[in-house]
Design a binder for these strands. Sequence first.
DNA 1: CTGCACCCTGTAGTCGGTACAGGGTCAACA
DNA 2: TGTTGACCCTGTACCGACTACAGGGTGCAG
Lengths: 134, 134
Amino acid sequence: MEKAYHSIGELAEATDTKVETVRYYERIGILPAPKRTSGNYRAYSDGHLARLSFIRRARDLGFTLDQVRALLALAAQKKQDCGTVDALAREHLADIDRKISDLKALRRELSGLIGQCKQGTIADCRILSALSPR
Amino acid sequence: MEKAYHSIGELAEATDTKVETVRYYERIGILPAPKRTSGNYRAYSDGHLARLSFIRRARDLGFTLDQVRALLALAAQKKQDCGTVDALAREHLADIDRKISDLKALRRELSGLIGQCKQGTIADCRILSALSPR
DNA sequence: CTGCACCCTGTAGTCGGTACAGGGTCAACA
DNA sequence: TGTTGACCCTGTACCGACTACAGGGTGCAG
């Protein structure tokens, strides 16, 4: 058997989360409030640990907290088909693709500017003039 | 000759910025406060327009407002060499490269998950189990 | 029994804006 | 002349997703 309860610090360490963030998740209602010890310390169950792990992993994958809420709600309804989950993930993938191509365009533009000014003065710096109004 | 003064709306439209954002830039001190008309409307010079254009273009390139402040300060000192500007831009480029590779890793991970659940139920959805604690 | 790590609540700050509310100004048109 | 409607003003609160205190309480080891 595993340990019955975890302190907030243990939960935070196990999920690579700051203690303040765990409390924040409780405040916004995405992680249920746990029982308290006699000294008013939060006492988390393994269920809390699992839920927080899920949240953090989804956040790492770039889902917003609202999307995580949606995923958690879906996960709770075991009968439903997982097409909805798949759609959510696909939508998110499209977002990622957009971000990647935006960043690549940006990268091209910026790297074109770099290395053009060698020993010049600000007065004729190409980077600054590229930023100036045309 | 160009028009002597511009209203905040004109400035905003010319630089593809919201009016509120222009006022915000004034509040945080990145765009100097302009003169006022008799009716207390802001009256911007071409210098303001140029500075706002610079700010917006740098923001579009992904520089933070602090970096923009630094660039503006450098641009104001015409004697200095532009190695500093170049370094700032290179640093920013490295940030972008990091973001791109992070997003690519994410993309690989997420796209590996998609399409694995066909007509299944939530109970054995691979996306949800991939998100669950291991 | 003292020191220290940990926990508690509550509030404010971060970044880069955005969204009102509740008013004032100005030009055109009837 | 009156009135509509577009624009402008200030001030404040809000967004997401945390983070950082301040000012205190708890628990355990030496």
